[in-house]
Amino acid sequence: MRGIQRLFHNHQSNPRDMDQPLRIVIAKPGLDGHDRGAKVVARALRDAGHEVIYTGLRRTPEQIIETVRDEDAVLLGLSSLSGAHGHLFPRICETLREHNMGDVIVFGGGIIPEDDWPPLFEAGVRALFGPGTTSEEMVEFIATAVKRDDAGVGHGAGWHWNPSA
């Protein structure tokens, strides 16, 4: 018992430990073999001080959710360049809610036409990043999202990232 208390004390007194790294899963759902973008994002988030778990190519929604669950990830980033985002992203959001994982924050990126954005936000995706997005913007989104209490996918449609606002 004393051990526990001392650790807590130390935790409080050392400001470096206050900002624990966030655990983020970067996933490639569906039949899409292009992961350069996902790897660049993974690297950028690592350089921002986060712990990034990359799933590898061609994962099913179930496999992705199992990874998020087992790794205790706070955020899930989905990358799609195949055009299947309209089906896969909402399906993943729905499966997260079904598995009682509504607190996970979902964001996406890749080649996603702006016309397709509203239904994805509706499904609970909190941000979409296209080509040309800076890593700073993504890092800022993450910092903002984790501070909000309505960013989890369980809150359904609602707040989403809007860089111009």
């Binding site: 790294p21 993974a42 690297r43 988030l45 690592r46 350089d47 921002a48 001080g49 986060h50 712990e51 990034v52 778990i53 990359y54 799933t55 590898g56 496999q63 199992e66 990874t67 087992d70 790794e71």
Partner: peptide
């Protein structure tokens, strides 16, 4: 290992663990 500079880490060992995708064994 975590990056000594940023404190972040890229954790990729999972990619090679096909057993976690095996319906019979996962």
């Amino acid at each position: 290992p975590s990056s000594p500079r940023s404190g972040g880490a890229l954790l990729g060992d999972r990619v090679r663990m096909q057993v976690v995708d095996d319906v019979e064994r996962k």
